[in-house]
């Protein structure tokens, strides 16, 4: 496989300002999407009864949209701290699998650099980084730069959404709800393995859809689909 043979003489992993800037520029559309989603979360948080500082704090510290939206859905007064933490863990468990995939890239870096990248890892900039790594990107600060610009967008959007409250009309009219599928479809198209090596993807799709139907809500289907697809890929013969 070209990927593994290229690995043995791959240039060393770097961590530079230029790499961070590349990541920020490539992920600019994602940062705009973050603003849009942040708006949605800010509105939701205000409806749920969180103050501006609390909504901003959650976006700044948690920085994981799906789990924050779900938290608003199950929020009580006073909040059930343990239950919210467990729900956030279950929804974000997919990060474990994503971080595992980043290990070959990050393992030779100082801990402070690798963990800066992991701390700013989200679904979107992770997918972008994996795709760009296939195209030869070797600078791990790419993840930091892309994550940082998305973080700014997310926190900014949250604040504006909270302040604007109900003034904004239906965000669906602007297609805000389909930014995520559009983005992931593009990522997927750049990872296309060819029809003859498609069985990991088919397995991942079937497993994810089944898990989505059968398992409790959250993001378990992402974990199940990802692991099944990877396992099928792992069993494939190299050719």
């Amino acid at each position: 496989m070209e990927h593994s043979s290229a690995k043995s003489n791959a240039p060393a992993v770097t961590f530079t300002l230029a790499g961070a800037r590349r990541g920020a520029i490539v992920c600019l559309p994602l940062a705009l999407a973050s603003i849009a989603f942040g708006l949605g979360f800010g509105i939701l948080a205000r409806d749920t009864g969180l103050g501006l500082a609390q909504a901003l704090g959650m976006s700044a510290f948690v920085f994981a949209g799906a789990s924050q939206m779900v938290a608003m859905d199950v929020w009580t007064v006073p909040p059930a701290v343990l239950g919210l933490a467990v729900a956030a863990f279950a929804i974000n468990i997919r990060h474990v699998v994503m971080g595992a995939a980043l290990r070959p890239w990050l393992r030779d870096l100082p801990l402070l650099q690798s963990h800066a990248a992991l701390t700013l890892m989200t679904d979107a900039n992770w997918a972008q980084a994996m795709a760009d790594r296939r195209k030869g990107e070797r600078d791990a600060a790419f993840i930091v730069g892309s994550g940082a610009i998305m973080w700014v967008g997310w926190v900014f959007g949250t604040g504006v959404g909270h302040l604007a409250g109900g003034v904004i009309g239906d965000p669906k009219a602007f297609g805000i709800d389909v930014i995520v599928p559009a983005f992931f479809a593009l990522t997927l198209s750049s990872l296309w393995p060819g029809v003859r090596r498609l069985h990991p993807w088919v397995a991942a799709a079937v497993a994810a859809v089944l898990a989505h139907e059968l398992l409790p809500s959250g993001a378990w289907h992402v974990v199940v689909g990802g692991l099944v697809g990877a396992a099928v890929g792992g069993m494939m013969r190299e050719d």
Binding site: V97, P200, A204, A205, V224, G225, G226, G229, G234
Partner: peptide
Amino acid sequence: HLPGALVVA
């Protein structure tokens, strides 16, 4: 194979 499988999922 993990990146593609996760995005598909």
